[in-house]
Amino acid sequence: MFFTDPDKIGASSNACNEEGFYGTDINGDGFIDSSTEAFYNEYFIDIDRYFDKMVENLSFCSPVRYSPIDAKSSFCQSPEQKRKVESWTDYVRWQRVLLEHLRSEEALKRVSGGG
């Protein structure tokens, strides 16, 4: 067993958080060659989109933070921070609704076999 810094991605891979998330243009030709330079597929691209959204919208006032700024403070009472808190809360809520929807749809498929 090994402990590593959080940057390390895989056991035998040089891939690292810092270099971009699904490949490194090692030879500098402007493309990520999927056989030698790409590590991942759309999975990481989509996670990165989620994190981009999080970076943009996760207010320091959000209860999602481990140590949020006091919601009653003047900083958190600003319209911008209020909007961010609301926006991120809504986004997460809708993602959970979507998950439940997909689960229900799947369950429905299982019980409604063709006649």
């Binding site: 991605i9 895989g10 056991a11 035998s12 891979s13 891939a15 958080n17 810092e18 270099e19 971009g20 998330f21 699904y22 490949g23 243009d25 402007g30 493309f31 990520i32 060659d33 999927s34 056989s35 030698t36 790409a38 590590f39 991942y40 597929n41 691209i45 990165d48 981009d52």
Partner: peptide, 25 residues
């Protein structure tokens, strides 16, 4: 050369341009 927790690496061949990569650093 790459990694996988199961079975090995089997990425679909897709050429990503560098411009498509997020530029965090």
């Amino acid at each position: 050369a790459t990694i996988a927790c199961q079975h090995g690496f089997a990425a679909e061949s897709r050429r990503l341009t560098v411009g498509e990569m997020p530029s965090r650093a």
